[in-house]
C-alpha cells in the first residue's frame, strides 16, 4: 500500500462514515511512531494517547470543515499534529524542547493549539443521553448533512431512503427533535450559547 492510496483509503472511509475502520488504521500506523518519538525523547508515556486523540479530533475537524488538503499524507499529517501538540505542551510545562529533532514531512502545517473542547465529562454524558433519545438514525442523518456536508441525493443512497423528499422530511424532523431536546435542556443550551 503506497502513501497516496493509504490517504485516499482513510479519507474515503471517513467520508463513508466508517470511522471505526479509519481510526483503527490510523492508530495502528501513527500511534506507535508518535509513542516512539515522544518516549524516546523523555516524554511521558501517559501523554501519548491524549495527544494522539487530540490530533485525531483536530484532523477530523479539518476533514469535516473540508479544510483538509488531500495532497498531504494523512499519517504524516496526524503524526506532525501529535508532535506539535507535544512540543506545545512541553512549552507550557516549561520543559526542554528538542526542536532540532523535529522534521516536518507535511508542508509546514501549524495549527494554534486549542484544547478547550466544550464537552468534557458531564457534557459528554448529556450529549450521549440526548442522542439516545433521538436515535441513531437521526444522529447519522444529521452527521451526514452537518458534519460531512453531504448532498441529500448522496444521503438517500447511503441511508436507503425511498426518495429525496422522504430524506428531507426525516432530516427536518430530526433537526427539530434535537433542537427541542437542546432547548429543553438548559445546561446544554447555556453551553452551546457560550460557544
Amino acid at each position: 500500500m503506497n502513501s497516496t492510496s493509504y490517504t485516499d483509503i482513510i479519507l474515503q472511509k471517513i467520508n463513508d462514515g466508517k470511522d471505526d475502520e479509519a481510526i483503527n488504521l490510523l492508530y495502528k500506523k501513527v500511534f506507535p511512531l508518535v509513542k516512539k518519538y515522544i518516549v524516546g525523547r523523555g516524554g511521558d508515556k501517559e501523554d501519548v494517547f491524549d495527544l494522539f486523540q487530540d490530533a485525531l479530533v483536530e484532523f477530523y475537524k479539518m476533514v469535516g470543515a473540508k479544510k483538509y488538503d488531500s495532497r498531504y499524507k494523512v499519517e504524516a499529517f496526524v503524526y506532525n499534529l501529535c508532535i506539535h501538540k507535544w512540543l506545545n505542551k512541553i512549552k507550557r510545562d516549561q520543559r526542554l524542547v528538542f526542536k532540532d529533532d523535529l522534521e516536518m514531512t507535511v508542508n509546514q502545517y501549524v495549527e494554534t493549539e486549542r484544547v478547550d473542547y466544550q464537552f468534557l465529562g458531564k457534557e459528554e454524558q448529556l450529549i450521549h443521553q440526548l442522542f439516545e433519545k433521538i436515535g441513531d438514525k437521526c444522529k447519522e442523518l444529521l452527521t451526514y448533512t452537518i458534519f460531512n456536508d453531504l448532498m441529500m441525493e448522496d444521503i438517500v443512497i447511503r441511508m436507503g431512503f425511498a426518495s429525496i423528499a422522504a430524506a428531507k422530511m426525516q432530516h427536518q424532523r430530526c433537526k427539530q427533535k434535537v433542537l427541542d431536546e437542546i432547548h429543553s435542556n438548559p445546561e446544554i443550551l447555556n453551553k452551546l450559547k457560550g460557544i
Partner: peptide, 26 residues
C-alpha cells in the same frame, strides 16, 4: 449553528471514543 456545534462536538466525542477503544484494544 447551535445544531452544527452540537453535531460536530458529538462527532468528535465519537471519534475520541473510537480512538479510546482502539487504544484499549491495543
Amino acid at each position: 449553528q447551535m445544531l452544527s456545534v452540537f453535531i460536530n462536538e458529538s462527532k468528535l466525542i465519537d471519534i475520541k471514543n473510537i480512538a479510546t477503544k482502539a487504544h484499549q484494544k491495543a
